[in-house]
Design a protein around this nucleic acid. Structure first.
Lengths: 361, 361
DNA sequence: CTGAAAGCGCTTACAG
DNA sequence: CTGAAAGCGCTTACAG
């Protein structure tokens, strides 16, 4: 399948197809759109020499945050997911490299990319919509859309958030705070909704004074503990929708002489294995970030090879794990570690002889 | 610069060059070697359509460990380092994709890769040597070689390891253990050497019974603490050459009722910001893993563009940071947090609105 | 094992 | 704004 096929289908010459592929400004917009549509329909593949490229793009719509534990886990999963079909992963960044006048498809084809895993944020949902509208193969990670043309894979944390807060209620807690980062994010809104569901189910009021928003850093978590414990009617438990907040909170509580869980129960959220690195080990809602990346890549590479036009609309439940950072209100004895909804987790391969730093307790 | 140029220089036809590039087995070995040598000399570039590719390979010689904090930090740095010259980062894996009969250069050219950052381990030092011998642009991360043709960038942790152990001695510690992972690794050997240097300088014996080797996991660190504290003459301080070991050790000590630092001083090693996530904050030898990746990528992309033949032989000193996990032997008051050798650190960009999980206290 | 020539995929003046 | 044709980079039968 070459420029020639596209040219025939679109009713233009191969010169025009080439011009569109290279985004020359001389092409009439309607012609351009028709050619791009045909190229996406036929699954046009950029060639290297005369071989088809097999690059899968890991796309940041905004500033890349590769070094973060969540991103690293997702990327590790994406890499594993490309193995079966033999695709390579290439890191691409819209903000850095996309030219303003070119379409997404043109940008991707220029990079030799046949499909993209989109790592995005709430503010760039329109970018996901535009890529889907052009018909370019894609999967959005950790978002959810109503439009059936947009493919996504998303962790469903609302139910476990409710379960987590229900668990606190069952331990006798009545003043339960919620800590979340201070930037709008659908994931985190879900967790807030789950928290509110549980409060209502337990006949507890939703108190805005118990909802804290801070940057998702250790310092943010510390600030929340500080603020929460110095209010008039302080909470006896906090559910954090972010790992860093929870870890910072535990550190801060201990340095304030507040015992966890005797004086304060803490539930966190974990995408990796960070919950095992703190003392006490964190009771947490756990999301398999690596699994999200794996699922996205393995589905997308198949869709590309099969030239199907399916969408992926997959929601993966989280898991609620009870560890040591939660206990009865008022400081009873600790409960034994156990898991309420054990789900299979697929850890990334841990090589030998390297300096890997992942927690594998 | 095309197959034609290579053909002329190598004294063969373009057909033969093409055959070598595609590793057809009909080519005589000597001819093949000559063509590959010329291709590397001229800096041959695979083309996409008729544009030069600009891929920088992030190469795993063995099993990829992308999700690990160290790898993620390095990769984040590599990505930043490619921005100026506009290269893209592509993840490649020898074990998965390299055909047994092809040379490294052939493999890389087939992937459209113009240079590689090599993430390797001690057991694959010969792979680094072979890539360098072929003349393919490369930088090895966290290794060191005598051969001046091999480019590397490496953290120098021996001096700070000595400094760390000297510091323990200055606090009155006389029984100081060393914890390291149980797989041979030059990095970690350096740290052991630094430990031994300090013991000798302080007139202390090197006691094999105080050197513990365990898998680099939280569990490994816990095991070391357990073993160390149940010996006849237990140490009052431990220096760990790996972050996970140190964090696991702190957790274990606390759960055994051993106070850190009053009963046991712990010094760790940190590639990222994990030391801030534990209680007490870890005194540590700190390596800027992201900076290693950045340095490698920014040098390598320039070398490719300039078609120079220089080698990179860069050693980056670590930093020794005194935090809360160390104190006088016998449990005096804690010292204030300060840094003995503050070095500029370049944190990865932290985006907004994402679920990033890096510690930025 | 290798080259000359045909041919594929693409781009690029040139012409309109 | 578009096409026909020339041309570049590469691969691939074909011939030896």
């Amino acid at each position: 399948m070459s420029v020639r096929t596209i040219a025939e289908q679109a009713g233009v010459s191969i010169s025009t197809v080439s011009r569109v592929l290279n985004n020359e400004n001389s092409v009439k917009p309607e012609t351009r759109e028709r050619v791009i549509a045909v190229a996406n329909e036929l699954g046009y593949v950029a060639t290297m020499g005369r071989r088809a490229t097999t690059n899968l793009g890991f796309l940041y719509t905004g500033e890349p945050t590769i070094a973060h534990a969540y991103d690293a886990a997702v990327l590790g999963g994406v890499y594993r997911g490309t193995e079966e079909m033999g695709f390579d992963v290439i890191l691409i960044n819209l903000r850095r490299d996309k030219r303003p006048e070119e379409t997404y498809t043109q940008f991707f084809m220029r990079k030799g990319v046949r499909g993209v895993i989109i790592r995005t944020m709430a503010e760039h949902r329109d970018v996901c919509r535009a890529i889907a509208a052009e018909g370019f193969p894609h999967v959005v990670i950790s978002e959810r859309f109503d439009d059936p043309k947009i493919s996504f894979i998303d962790g469903e944390s609302r139910a476990d958030s409710t379960r987590a807060v229900n668990y606190l209620c069952s331990l006798g807690h009545r003043r339960i705070a919620f800590g979340v980062h201070n930037i709008p994010d659908r994931d985190h809104d879900d967790r807030l909704a789950g928290y509110e569901d549980a409060l209502q189910a337990n006949g507890l009021p939703i108190d805005e004074a118990l909802i804290f928003r801070q940057p998702f850093t250790l310092a943010g978590g510390a600030t929340i503990v500080q603020m929460a414990l110095t209010t008039v009617d302080p909470p006896s438990a906090i559910y954090f929708a972010d790992p860093m907040l929870a870890i910072g909170a535990i550190k801060k509580a201990r340095s304030m002489g507040v015992r966890v869980p005797e004086d304060l129960s803490i539930i966190g959220f974990d995408d990796t294995d960070l919950r095992f690195g703190v003392e006490p080990t964190l009771t947490a809602v756990v999301q398999d970030a690596s699994g999200l990346g794996f699922g996205a890549a393995s589905w997308l590479t198949r869709r590309i090879i099969n030239k199907s036009n399916d969408s992926l609309r997959r929601t993966v439940p989280t898991n609620f794990e009870i560890c040591e950072s939660t206990g009865p209100v008022g400081g009873g004895p600790r409960l034994a570690t156990r898991s309420m909804s054990p789900a299979p987790r697929r850890p990334d391969a841990v090589g030998t002889g390297n300096q890997g730093k992942i927690a594998t307790p």
